[in-house]
Design a protein around this nucleic acid. Structure first.
Length: 490
RNA sequence: GGGGCUAUCGUCUAAGGGUUAGGACACCGCCCUUUCACGGCGGCAAUCGGGGUUCGAAUCCCCGUAGCCCUACCA
């Protein structure tokens, strides 16, 4: 029986938003969008020491920059507000409303029990088992003791012993959409803790309660949670809830195959923004890690097909086309995708992303320019690999050269060419066609090649022999500025 | 130690018994060119090891090896 599709991303606000988390969120988002379902953002803030409102905002902003909008969850920037019928969406706010009642019911129904074994006792037993090379499992000392609440206690779940009818050959069977059918022998699982002695519930308990009450139909998460799943399945069973469908996505590794960490470069989503990447490129690159889009059953076969739009990704996305094995993060490919997406974007589309980078070079200057100017500025720098390169390529338009590359001056600004600059000063029509016509006339008269004049102009105007196409360079500066900059060479 | 997962070019991957093992990124070379780029064309490059099953294995089975996850009163 098909439930409406609901997915969720549940990060801990313990710092930055990790790129691996973004990828998981992206899969959840794609899946929900594809099936016309809802996507929930839930904050797992039970780690009180590290969770802060500021970190929550970092997550929200990272998600929004990346284009991953959620249908239910916190309202960005307002720690106490939320949107959606299943709130609150922060675990700390769900203690009394959700966790305690579920715990009480479990205790009353016998699915869980109070355990008085002290932490010291447990630690000692574990240490001893380890010393003897044995595996340690909680022996179930208090399982049938029927302890009351008169003394301190933790709460443990009664895990199946092997004979239960919902097991298959004594194993909990997980049919994972990505990993396939996985079997976990009940004997390998012990009675785990649902709530600590101080009454706070543990992670594995909260996820189940939250996913159930939020009507999550598909749990899509990192495969570091695979081994937790049978424990959670037992809890679903004890609670009498139908378990959601699970899909565990493989991890993202660094270039060297080790877990992606700081020494591999950027790990936080905000760093990718700082690198001058388009969110659409980040989405595409992340999605293509572990996922091979199939068009009519065929994997994408060319560069053209690889460059999917969001709509295409949503249309094509299928968890069955995901890899089981981990993938290494490939910055080269991300850069390539970024370049391609920059190339094919319209200037209005690019402008909001480019503006902040231009602002760093010339604060406020961008918005003072006309639409035509901004259009040309974007188009003439669209060959850049990223927004930083694009903005940098426009620097000449906002500030005159602070110095002139001596070698370039010697090579291109030859005595023979300087007089020609004087002719350029006389030109008044900077439209492309006019410039081309007038330049051709000058070149013919002087017996020069465009290359000679173009390079001389670049050096004279920008201080170095590199700039956008020469006619664009002139148009971006305008006749007045060109005359001013050329004056010293005449 | 126990439980679970994984293994094709440098990277992301395609091919579930028969292919010269295909594509993309990166790299290298050539061409184009108004600088830098873009672009076009071409090249290099892989089935972890060992046993089976089979006429035939990257594909199926077993055994190794390596890596990762879980094994907390962390999440």
């Amino acid at each position: 029986m098909a439930r409406p599709v609901v997915t969720r991303f549940a990060p801990s606000p313990t710092g930055m938003l990790h790129i691996g988390g973004v990828r998981t969120a992206l899969f959840c988002w794609l899946f929900a969008r594809k099936h016309g379902g809802r996507f929930i953002l839930r904050i797992e803030d039970t780690d009180l020491d590290r969770s802060t409102d500021q970190n929550i905002e970092i997550i929200e902003q990272g998600m929004l920059w990346c284009g991953l909008d959620w249908d239910e969850g916190p309202v960005p920037g307002d720690p106490s507000a939320w949107r959606g019928p299943h709130g609150p969406y922060r675990q700390m706010l769900r203690m009394d409303s959700h966790y305690r009642p579920a715990l009480a019911r479990l205790l009353a129904e016998g699915g869980a029990y109070r355990c008085r074994c002290s932490r010291d006792l447990l630690d000692a037993a574990r240490a001893e088992a380890e010393r003897e090379g044995r595996i340690y499992q909680y022996p179930g000392t208090c399982r049938e003791a029927g302890h009351d609440a008169s003394q301190p206690f933790a709460i443990r779940l009664k895990m199946p012993r092997g004979e239960e009818t919902w097991l298959e050959d004594g194993a909990i069977v997980l049919r994972d959409l990505i990993k396939g059918t996985l079997r976990f022998p009940a004997a390998s699982l012990d009675d785990w803790i649902l709530a600590r002695t101080d009454g706070t519930p543990t992670y594995n308990f909260c996820v189940v309660v939250d996913d159930t009450s939020m009507e999550v139909s598909h749990v899509i998460r990192g495969d570091d949670h695979v081994a937790n799943t049978p424990k959670q399945m037992a809890l679903y069973h004890a609670l009498g809830f139908e378990a959601p469908v699970f899909a565990h996505v493989p991890m993202i590794l660094g270039k060297d195959g080790a877990k992606l960490s700081k020494r591999h470069g950027a790990t936080s989503i905000t760093e990718y923004r700082e690198l001058g990447l388009l969110p659409s490129a980040v989405r595409l690159a992340l999605a293509r890690l572990s996922w091979t889009p199939k068009i009519d059953g065929r994997a994408v076969e060319s560069a053209e097909e690889e460059l999917l739009t969001d709509q295409e990704m949503i249309h094509l996305f299928d968890l069955e086309d995901c890899q089981k094995s981990p993938a290494r993060f490939d910055m080269d490919k991300l850069n390539w995708m970024n370049q391609k997406l920059i190339q094919r974007a319209g200037w209005r589309e690019l402008e909001p992303y480019l503006r902040p980078f231009v602002d760093r070079i010339a604060p406020g200057a961008w918005d003072e320019r006309s639409e035509d100017w901004r259009d040309l500025a974007v188009r003439s720098t669209q060959k850049g690999k990223n927004l930083i390169e694009m903005a940098e390529a426009l620097r000449f338009a906002f500030e005159g050269p602070s110095e002139f590359d001596p070698k370039a001056v010697e090579k291109f600004l030859t005595p023979a060419l300087r007089p020609v600059l004087g002719e350029v000063v006389n030109l008044g029509d900077y439209s492309h066609d006019a410039l081309e016509r007038d330049f051709n006339a000058i070149l013919e008269r002087r017996g020069l090649k465009l290359k000679d004049l173009a390079q001389a102009l670049r050096v004279a105007l920008c201080g170095r022999p590199v700039s956008p196409p020469i006619f664009d360079t002139l148009a971006l500066l305008g006749p007045e500025e060109v005359r001013a900059r050329l004056a010293r060479w005449l």
